[in-house]
Computed example of a mutant assay.
Amino acid sequence: MPRRRHQPADATAGVFVADDTRPKGEHIKDVLTSLVRESKDGSLLPSERVLSERFGVARMTVRGVINELESQGLVRRVGGRGTFVQHPTLTHSEIFRSFTEDMRNRGMTPSSQRYRARTRPAPRDVATQLGIEPGDPVHSIERVRTADGVPMALESTNLSARRFPNLLAVMAKDASLYEVLTRVFKVRFESAEQTVSIARLSPVQAGRLDVPAYEPAFAVERRAVDNMGNVVEFGRSLYRGDRYSIQMHVSRPSSS
């Protein structure tokens, strides 16, 4: 018999049997927490109706448990689509790393979607950040960055086409920009200045990140500098607010 919509395919029926030794809500929460942790990020959970039938409880009981899981950041609801597994948020730290390096350090596989690369005249704001003249040629690279196949950020960056003339010819969709710049152009990155603000994702941006429209996101502007003090790139990225937190190191000024 075909599996009904939202009905679990890989969980044994026995795991949903009620446990008479504990409160129903507590048992259901333990089972669903285990199911979430064993499932792939972004997986669709069974519907409230299916879960209530499996556990033999009212839908309100199941809904209360899912509300708890949502408050803990373990699942997310998408109107009209269902409830999805959401693995814990990632910390965007003050350590200067590329997206690829950051995801690899977390044991995740970085990749890209919707890759677009072109050479264009530099707008005034981009030229100012790169230290070049408005209208000078710049390489612009835009892509959706993913981790284990899940969209995480909309990345857009700009580099001087005169300094890196054949960059787009050697740059691949899933490649690390910093690794290419280091390997091909012998760039030695030193530091970066970052500005973080809060933004609302437009319907188009939200669609690319697979989240509801107008969800909050971290808008990050980055200007990376090499060991000679020259600006290498200037970019603006949008990081999913439901998947990231920002970590900063702060200290009090010296008494002197």
Rank of each mutant, 00 (worst) to 15 (best):
P212M: 11
Q86C: 08
G135E: 07
A127F: 10
P110S: 05
R63L: 04
R183L: 02
N158L: 00
S98L: 01
E26L: 05
H27K: 11
P203V: 04
A11L: 10
A153G: 00
L51C: 07
F164V: 03
V15T: 13
V50E: 11
M171T: 02
K29R: 13
S111T: 09
V225T: 13
V78L: 05
M248Y: 03
N105D: 13
S71G: 12
G207V: 02
R145M: 06
R22L: 14
D125R: 07
A18H: 08
R222Y: 03
T182C: 10
A217P: 07
D136L: 01
T12M: 10
V187I: 09
G25C: 11
P137C: 10
V250D: 09
L45W: 01
D125L: 02
T33D: 14
P123L: 08
I141Q: 03
P216T: 13
D148L: 03
S156V: 01
R104C: 13
L167A: 09
L181N: 01
R223Q: 05
T109C: 05
L51T: 01
V65M: 02
G14H: 06
P253H: 12
N230D: 13
V196N: 14
G241K: 11
F164Y: 15
D41E: 15
L238F: 11
L154V: 02
H6E: 07
F96M: 15
S254V: 12
A147Q: 12
R118W: 01
T33Y: 04
S52I: 02
N227Y: 07
K173S: 05
Y178K: 07
S251D: 15
T195F: 09
A13Y: 00
D242K: 05
V150L: 11
R145P: 00
S156Y: 01
S255M: 15
V62M: 08
R4W: 01
Q7N: 02
R37G: 09
L167W: 05
Q86T: 07
T195H: 13
K24H: 07
A217L: 08
Y214W: 12
E142K: 08
S191Q: 15
M228I: 05
L74A: 15
N67A: 14
V187N: 05
E155D: 12
S202F: 13
A172D: 03
A161S: 08
L168V: 10
Y115P: 03
R143W: 13
I28C: 10
R162N: 14
S140K: 02
H139G: 05
R22K: 14
A172C: 02
L44K: 12
D174P: 11
R118E: 12
D102I: 00
M108E: 08
S52E: 12
N166H: 15
S71L: 13
E68V: 07
E221W: 08
Y115F: 15
P212R: 10
P203E: 08
S255F: 13
A122I: 00
T91C: 01
G64N: 01
Q194E: 15
F84L: 11
S256A: 11
L35M: 12
T91H: 02
T83A: 00
E26Y: 09
R240T: 12
S255W: 08
G79S: 00
L159F: 00
R5N: 06
G73M: 05
D19T: 09
I95D: 09
S52M: 01
T128Y: 04
R222F: 04
V75H: 03
E68L: 12
